[in-house]
């Protein structure tokens, strides 16, 4: 069964489920419109250009993926398994290849480990979410959006202003707090971020909050001192609540190239990252590096940022992500199948 059919079947659950799925898929499609236009049209061009699946075809496909920042090694792996698949299924012309490509991409993405994209929060009592990442990836903005999301799910949310370093960072979080309507625990600029966390957890406990989202200062992963500071913040949180932080989310800029892999690895070592938020996916960048990250480090993407509005944060779904990239081509293919 083709990937698209499976996908379609998935959408044929209960009517309500179906509507939900469709609306999220549409959001993905919209947000990814630019990405898709570029990426898919390229794949379409490719399919139109090459009737036959041959080495030239593979080479050009490889180039498309490289230009999506997927990264060299992962692309090579993907090409190998694609070649194998094409041989096994005896695919000769390019018309049938799109679904195979997206199937493989999803497979790489979901390989091995369990693929938990939902936030793992406590059913009762306080849950802590810690945000980490390099400078300028959009941590504070994402926190604002996530707070809005959790609040509209009926949770009592509080924010901790742990970026005490960058000028104006605390004010920035406060503006988001006001916008969303949640309380922000903060101290003066330049104070110890671990102390802010300690305070915030105490406050969140007393005020019976469900979720505390902690902001931290952006730091480049090769700054040892700053990474140590992050470990300390992590430690202080775990000391206050042994099961916390329940989620450590790494904010990753979709425009980042191969360095994102190093980022993910180093932050994972320091704070045991549980998930990635892929930000700024509404530009022309494709964020293909998440495939490599998933492939090498097994960290799942949990959310994607698709714009600057409060509700522009969407849960990540590998199938939909890939579907978003290939949507037009797949629809065509399926129509042809239906006709047959």
């Amino acid at each position: 069964m083709s990937f698209f059919k499976k996908f379609k079947e998935k959408m044929m659950g209960t009517t309500q489920e179906k509507e939900e799925t469709i609306s999220i898929t549409n959001k993905f499609k919209e947000g990814l419109a630019k990405t898709r236009n570029q990426f898919t049209s390229k794949v379409n061009d490719l399919v139109a250009k090459y009737r036959k699946v041959d080495e030239d075809f593979f080479e050009e496909l490889e180039e498309i993926l490289l230009q999506a920042d997927v990264g060299f090694e992962t692309v090579l792996e993907l090409m190998d398994s694609l070649r194998f698949e094409v041989q096994r299924k005896n695919i000769k012309d390019t018309a049938g290849i799109q679904s195979v490509i997206s199937e493989k991409l999803v497979e790489i993405y979901e390989a091995g480990e369990d693929n938990v994209t939902e936030l793992q929060l406590e059913k009762e009592g306080l849950s802590v979410i810690l945000f980490v990442g390099v400078n300028g990836v959009g941590k504070t903005t994402t926190i604002g959006k996530l707070a809005h999301r959790l609040k509209s799910e009926g949770k009592k949310v509080m924010l901790a202003a742990g970026d005490t370093f960058r000028a104006g960072a605390i004010d920035q979080l406060q503006v988001w707090g006001d916008r969303v309507g949640v309380e922000v625990i903060k101290q003066a600029e330049g104070s110890d971020p671990a102390a802010v966390m300690y305070d915030a957890i105490r406050a969140a406990k007393t005020r019976d909050a469900d979720v505390l989202i902690c902001d931290t200062a952006g730091r480049l992963q090769n700054k040892v001192n700053l990474m140590n500071e992050l470990e300390k913040i992590h430690r202080v949180i775990s000391r206050e609540i042994p099961s916390a932080p329940h989620e450590v989310l790494l904010a990753l800029d979709a425009t980042t190239g191969q360095n994102a892999l190093v980022q993910a690895q180093t932050f994972k070592e320091a704070t045991n990252v549980t998930g990635i938020v892929l930000t700024k996916l509404d530009g022309t960048a494709k964020g293909g590096i998440v495939l490599a990250i998933r492939n090498k480090l097994h960290i799942p993407v949990k959310f994607v940022g698709l714009g600057e509005q409060m509700d522009d944060l969407q849960p990540f779904d590998a199938e939909k992500y890939v579907y978003g990239l290939f949507a037009d081509g797949l629809e065509l293919e399926s129509e042809n199948e239906d006709k047959e």
């Binding site: 920042d69 425009t255 980042t256 190239g257 994102a260 530009g283 590096i289």
Partner: peptide, 12 residues
């Protein structure tokens, strides 16, 4: 421009 930018740097 962020030095870490990937392939998209040319478009930007």
């Amino acid at each position: 421009v962020d030095a870490m930018t990937g392939q998209d740097a040319v478009n930007v």
